[in-house]
Structure formats: C-alpha cells, structure tokens
Amino acid sequence: MNEVAIQSDGVATPDFKKIKKKQQLIRFLKGILFLMPSIILFAVFLFYPLIRTIYLSFFLTDASGSTTVFVGLDNFINMFSSPVFRKSMQSTFLFVIFTVPGTVLIGLFLAILANEKLKGIGFFRTIYSSTMGISVAAGSVFWLFLFNPTMGWLNEILNFFGIEAIGWLTDPSWALLSVSITTIWMNLGFIFLILLGGLQSIDSYLYESAEIDGASYFYKLRRITIPMLSPTLFFVITVSLINAFQTFGQIDMLTSGGPQNETNLIVYSIYQEAFMNYQYGTASAQAVVLFVIILVLTFIQFKLGEKKVHYQ
C-alpha cells in the first residue's frame, strides 16, 4: 500500500532531475523498509548495549545499575590489578588452549572417518553430530554424573585399574581440565558437521588422479585433503576460539567458577560481578575486555579468511 502512494507522488513532479532524485529516494526508502526490522533490533540489542557497556565501565553504579560516580579508568585499573580477574583471564586463556585444538583435532578425525564411502556411514555421521542437539544444560547434567566422585564412571574406571579416585570438579588442579573435556564433547557435533561439509565439497577428481599415480592413503590426506580443507579448518578454528571465550552454561552448572576460582572464566566472572555482586561498572569493564578480544578474533577471521577462501 505504501509503495503505491509513494510512486504516484513521483509521477506528479515535472522536472527530470527532480524525478530522478525522487526515484532514488523512493528506492532508498523501499530498501530501508525491508532492512528496518533488523536495523532497529540491531540498534537496540547490539549497538546501544555496546556503547552503554563502554559508558558504564567508567562509572560506579547502584544495585539497579544506574550510574552514581564517574571514576574514569579506575574500574580498569582495579580490574587489571585484581588477582581474581587476573586469575580469571589466565583460566580463560588456558581453557581456550585446552578446548580449541582438542575440538578441532577430534572433529577433524571424526570427519575424515565419516567421509569414507562405507556401508552404514550415515548412522555414524548422525552419532558424531549428535552432541550439537544436546544442550549445555543437559550435557552438563550427563557429565556431572560421570564426574561424580563416588558413583561416577570416570572414577569407577580408574578404580578398576587400581588408580586413586580424582576429584574431577573439586580438585583445583583438575577442575579446569574436566570442564574443558565436557566442552570439547559439547562442541564436537557442530565442528564435525562443518568439517564434514568441507570434506564433501572437495572435488573427487583430485583423489582419482592421485589414485592413478598410486598415492598412499596418508599421502592423499596430507597433500589433498588438508590443503583443500584449509579454508574450512580456518573457519572452524576461529569459531571455536570465539565460542571458547563465550563459555558460560557448563561453568554455571558444573563448578560455579570454583574451586578457588580455577574455572571462573570471563563470562562467568562478568555474570557474577553484575548479577550477584551488583557491580555493574566493574562488570562492564570486564565485558569491554571480552568485546575487544572477540573483535580482534573476528577481524583476523575476516582478513585472513578472505584471502584463503577464494582459491578454489
């Protein structure tokens, strides 16, 4: 209805230049109309919060989150000198180092296995991708039992081999590793699916000609599969990196950041600071740090990804 009304307006103007300008405006307005819903929601729930977070990070707030005192960079200075936050950053980076290579390598292994043309391969593909359909909450509950110190399967297995029981989630030297194992398992399905998609888009002609030359399985893997898969691999690595920095649910369910803040990853730390301690200012300062990390990672992904993607 709108369109009709605008169009008849345009016809009424005699001057050619004016008509052209008007038509341009109409085209612009129509385009904006289609984009408007997304733009408004992005503005309200993405760009505004971003600016607001930066703004809040310079203030102290009351319990409802209204700003009270301007403190400049104090929140940042206090944050970086706080042993708890430094511990949180250290844990976050360790967690990333544990989970990203783990997820990508196991995912790659499974994808290569599941890419063979064997009978019943569809069943295995379904199983390997299954963890994508298992929510963080449900996955955490499953693992919570496996980690259980007395009844859990992991300690039962250790017990069977005569090894002493481990406090998987309660021992400070194990907790972060345990949470990492759970996370690798949770993210495996998604990473597997993307890698399998990448493998299937490799031209089978390449393998056939290598076959004629009598190339071995591992030679083909190293010289054809991995290089041809590199754009997908690259994408998967950056996505896992970003996901790892945003981990929250399994921490909340499994350890609540403990023991001794060992698993207090950055998003959990923000959550605690804002919604349990009501320190919105310092929480925002931490959120700014998280934002900068993600920004850099995404930027690298775009810049490097652009170059790597187009060679096929």
Binding site: F47, Y48, I270, I294
Partner: peptide, 19 residues
C-alpha cells in the same frame, strides 16, 4: 550487518538485561 558479528551477546548482556 557484518560488523554485528563482532559484538558478542555475552559482552552486551548487562545493558540488554536493563533494557
């Protein structure tokens, strides 16, 4: 639109909660 991919929801959760 591309730039929105650089803003993680987790980092903007405080103002979103307030909104």
């Amino acid at each position: 639109f591309i730039s929105t991919m650089m803003v993680p929801f987790e980092a903007s959760v405080i103002p979103n909660f307030q909104t």
